[in-house]
Design a protein around this nucleic acid. Sequence first.
DNA 1: AGTGCGATTGACT
DNA 2: GTCAATCGCACTA
Length: 210
Amino acid sequence: MGRTNALKTGRHRYQPLARVALPIDTARMARYLIGKMVVRELPQGVVSGRIVETEAYVVGDAAGHAYRGMTLRNRSLFLERGHAYVYLAYGSSYMLNVSSEKPGIGAGVLIRALEPCEGVPIMQVNRGSERLRDLARGPGRLAQALRIDRGFDGLDLCHEGALWLGRGDPVTGEIGQSVRIGITQEANRVLRFYLRGSAFPSGPKSLNVR
DNA sequence: AGTGCGATTGACT
DNA sequence: GTCAATCGCACTA
């Protein structure tokens, strides 16, 4: 922290991600997003976190929500890369995804965990939890900490606003990979990415070794 | 109109 | 480690 003055903008430490810099390939995008920032601007202040865990839901993936074609719920997955797809899982947890392919092609990256950076006290209020490690470890917790819901579905995340993606500090550690969490279809595909050695990714230890 | 099912979480043994 | 809550959505009729 602190050596990123070259990236500084008027209001924030980080510039938004440039869409042209996003890989047009879902698995590569999932890896690319490790180390980037999710920034949420709330009335109380800015809340942000560094992405430490993602999962790719690729083209033709039976586990992906776009697999059976476009519906009212999943249509944001078909937007140009860099748009939010937010849905409600299990009736209680919102999931933040980033669309990842060309317009009309449905695929996305699930943001599964953040290392909290700015606005930790706000996250603690939003989550009703004090523990730093639990604030955004898991996709549902992440959305709760940042107050993300279906209202953000379809938002372009490549511009500063209520919710956007920022360039992070360069990733120094290794990026690990594993099978994805919580799915039954295509369960053997290695499409989960995480920052090795970080305390903030979700998942059992057994998945966080490679 | 009815049915079944999760890209999870938190509580509990 | 196990397990149930919870509800929007897709699917069938």
